[in-house]
């Protein structure tokens, strides 16, 4: 007999529309640590799961993009607070997933939480940085403002299962987009656990949807989906990225191509601007003439 109690395993599930369903296909796949040891079974998402996630993301887009930037900042900051409370859990999951020592994994988790905080602070500043008034040569008020593109499919980086994930997800939702995230194929557990954090913070259901499984299998229907507005190909290899970019042309999705990124570095604003549209609004001003009367 041993003193050790038998631990309770967690059943990892997808996160779609604020709920935690299994894959509609009923399939799972084995997730192992960096040394090949079994960690858990993760849902193996199908194209129908992808479709459901898009529906959920579209449904959530109106309210999330219409929320005040201050409110989105508060919500994202709340996520960081919740993450901080689960620091140990994520440290263990990241260590397993990426084969890191406990202290290195802890540093990655800290950096990840700090990244949420960084993006939480951006929500009500990005419009001032990339938008503004334009001095047109005529009696018109002219203002350009950034607006979220819509539903963004995010292929999370394959290697950096948590910091990389957050580094691609947070900028998408900070600006008011909603996301369908395809977790790292080999290391999906931190992403699936992040979903639990999102569900227990104030992020409305559907704003972030997390799918696990074969990246290529899930990404293909997302790239060709006519109701997805943009796609971040961070987690696609060169060959897949090209295929997906071709599919994405069908409705002219905004495409962020894969590129080498050091996720430990402080990011710029590119990942936010990649999924922002610029809207320019004109309105006549009239003019006050010399006599003070302009009509």
């Amino acid at each position: 007999m041993s003193d050790e109690r038998l631990s309770v395993f967690k059943t990892y599930k997808l996160y779609v529309g604020g709920k935690f369903p299994r894959s509609e296909s009923g399939r799972v796949y084995e997730v192992t640590d960096s040394k090949g040891k079994w960690l858990a079974n993760a849902p193996l998402s199908s194209r129908k799961d992808a479709r459901d996630a898009v529906v959920a993301a579209r449904k959530a887009f109106g309210a999330w993009s219409g929320a005040t930037a201050y409110n989105r900042g508060q919500v994202l900051y709340r996520v960081a607070e919740m993450l901080e409370g689960r620091r140990d859990q994520f440290t263990r999951e990241v260590a397993d997933a990426e084969g890191l020592s406990k202290s290195k994994a802890a540093a990655v988790v800290d950096a990840t939480i700090d990244r949420w905080v960084w993006y939480a602070g951006w929500t009500d500043k990005i419009a001032q940085v990339v938008g503004g008034g334009n001095p047109v040569a005529g009696p018109f008020f002219n203002l350009s403002s950034p607006e979220p593109t819509g539903v963004v499919a995010v292929l999370a980086p394959q290697e950096s299962s948590f910091l990389g994930l957050v580094s691609v997800l947070a900028p998408v939702i900070a600006t008011g987009n909603t996301a369908v995230v395809v977790a790292s194929e080999r290391s999906p557990l931190p992403a699936l656990s992040l979903a639990e954090v999102l569900a227990t913070s104030d992020v409305p259901g559907g704003v972030v949807n997390v799918l696990s499984g074969r990246t290529a299998e899930i990404a293909t229907p997302l790239a060709s989906h006519q109701d997805v507005n943009a796609i971040d190909l961070a987690g696609a290899d060169e060959e897949l990225a090209k295929e997906l970019e071709i599919a994405a042309a069908d409705n002219l999705k905004r495409v962020l191509r894969p590129q080498p990124v050091d996720y430990a570095e402080t990011p710029g604003i590119d990942r936010m601007t990649a999924f922002l549209e610029t809207k320019t609004v004109w309105h006549p001003t009239g003019s006050l003439g010399a006599s003070g009367s302009s009509y």
């Binding site: 001095p135 047109v136 005529g138 002219n142 350009s144 809207k279 609004v281 006549p284």
Partner: peptide, 17 residues
């Protein structure tokens, strides 16, 4: 829409995206 003209239409300017 990328350009919204209110109480005007088809106005263009080099400074206006």
């Amino acid at each position: 829409a990328g350009v919204v003209w209110s109480n005007t239409f088809n106005k263009f300017d080099p400074t206006s995206p």
